[in-house]
Simulated scan of single mutants.
Amino acid sequence: MTRILFPLFAAAALSGCGSFADRLGLGEDRPDPDVSAATEAAAPAPSVEASATPVLTSGANSAESLDTTTAEEREAATKPPTAAGASLGETVVSLGSATEPGLWIKTPLVQNEMPGRVTNPANGKSAAVTLIPIEGPATAGSRMSLPALRLIGASLTDLTTVEVSAAG
């Protein structure tokens, strides 16, 4: 009896394994990997014109090349404010869409779009930005533009705590 039950038990236990199940005829209908590879190799590559995603040139793979702000915009954003704005609180920021231009922070700390300022408490650098509301509790994180992160000396890959205030 053990000689009959063990092979059945083993077949049932291994039926979830794709290649073993395929060999026993127990698996789902899966495309033959050799046929799929041949089909992919024969398929033409999509043209650049047909692509909806912007294609970056070889030089567009650095933060410098993706930062589309002008020197004048960066200088204006880093000028000290004439009056202190109302503090809205602290938030943890990460890099937002690197291809979205401008100096902005998308944060749940505001209900309406408005001018504001972000300050990196680690080094004291600040920048004038547009505060853009997003849904979520005030304790939720925020996303900041690549140029704004660069101006305040924040890491593009780490999470950074910043102070957010309304424009003064």
Rank of each mutant, 00 (worst) to 15 (best):
V118S: 08
T130E: 14
A50M: 08
N123C: 08
L149T: 15
T130P: 07
T69P: 03
D67S: 01
G141A: 01
L149H: 11
D32Q: 01
A98N: 12
L109A: 12
N61Q: 13
G85H: 08
E49M: 06
V129I: 14
T70R: 05
T70V: 06
A60W: 06
E113K: 05
A38P: 05
G89A: 03
N61H: 14
A83N: 11
A71V: 15
G89P: 01
V118G: 11
V93P: 04
L24T: 15
T139K: 07
I134A: 02
A37V: 01
E100Y: 10
P80G: 00
A128M: 04
S126E: 09
G136L: 05
P121K: 04
T91M: 07
I132K: 02
A63F: 09
T70N: 03
L26M: 06
T53P: 10
I105K: 02
A41M: 00
E73P: 08
V92P: 01
A37N: 00
S155E: 12
E113C: 04
T157V: 13
P147E: 07
L131C: 08
V48S: 14
A45L: 11
R143P: 09
R117C: 00
A148D: 12
T157L: 01
T139Y: 05
A83D: 15
D34E: 11
A138H: 06
A76F: 07
L156W: 11
R143K: 11
